[in-house]
């Protein structure tokens, strides 16, 4: 068996080590965020007396907020500290001794989480559409779903590189989890995780189009819902890849300098 299969299986075992906790957390998180967002938007739609706001009906809002919590979990992958914690504790040394690149190893473990959450998104969305299909939304399309989940995976890879760049700051600073939390705030807010970006002022939307943020959350979610045109999807793929390359180059520079700082002792 190839090394990457071993690593993926080991990570899957970790994910499912505490099954009841895992499923309660997953369903609880998804449902709560959906229901809270639904309650808020229901009230706003009712108070304004409209059926559609900025291109979204209430039913579309429901779908959007069903996708968002799992989509953002896909982005977060292995979660905060996947490199910085190991640098802090000195356990990062073992990856330097492995016969494979530390970055390849970490990318694989991270993406195993993203892939697993992607499967959950696929299943949950399919089930939801099966039981709650309504006339105002286009018919469920599996190709859109596959394309959207694929975009989320590409987005996870780009986000991983953004996060890795920040995690490597741990080579100089003792504690950097706050920086990752900040990154999460920015990505969720500017990616449309709190409010769809069509509700943002027009100038803001224009600026954001050149940043990676909309393509990390909103565009993949809209693709799943069948709201994205093919040019939106191509643009998302292109921009995600360009930003991934930029972050990769920055990581190389930071690692080259930071490697000399690493003592392997831990704190």
């Amino acid at each position: 068996m190839n090394w990457w299969k071993h690593v993926m299986l080991m990570e899957l075992r970790k994910i499912l080590a505490y099954r009841s906790d895992f499923w309660i957390t997953f369903l609880g998180q998804t449902l709560i965020q959906l229901l809270v967002a639904r309650s808020l938007w229901q009230m706003i739609f009712a108070s304004e007396g409209v059926k559609v706001m900025n291109g979204y009906s209430l039913e579309m809002m429901n779908l959007y907020y069903l996708i968002i919590p799992i989509g953002t979990r896909m982005l977060s992958g292995e979660n905060i500290g996947f490199v910085s914690r190991e640098i802090y504790e000195g356990t990062f040394t073992r990856y330097l001794l492995y016969p494979i690149s530390v970055f390849q190893y970490k990318t694989l473990t991270y993406m195993t989480y993203s892939l697993f959450y992607g499967l959950q998104l696929f299943l949950l969305y399919s089930l939801y559409r099966l039981f709650f299909t309504t006339s105002s939304i286009t018919v469920m399309d599996f190709s859109n779903l596959l394309l959207g989940v694929g975009l989320f995976l590409l987005a996870s890879l780009t986000y991983l590189l953004m996060a890795m760049l920040i995690e490597l700051i741990a080579l100089w600073a003792d504690n950097i989890w706050t920086l990752i939390v900040m990154l999460k705030f920015f990505v969720t807010f500017l990616g449309g995780g709190f409010v769809p970006l069509t509700f943002f002022p027009a100038l803001f939307q224009d600026i954001l189009r050149w940043t990676p943020f909309p393509y990390l959350i909103q565009v993949p979610a809209q693709t799943i819902m069948g709201m994205s045109q093919s040019q939106d999807i191509f643009r998302a793929i292109a921009l995600l890849l360009i930003w991934a390359l930029i972050f990769m180059e920055l990581i190389k520079i930071v690692w080259k300098r930071g490697e000399k700082q690493y003592t392997g002792v831990g704190i």
Binding site: A173, D174, N175, I176, T178, L179, M182, F186
Partner: peptide, 14 residues
């Protein structure tokens, strides 16, 4: 941990 001290303040402002 002075750097962490400043990071935490910025995080909460964000």
């Amino acid at each position: 941990f002075r750097l962490d001290f400043s990071f935490r303040i910025i995080m909460d402002i964000v």
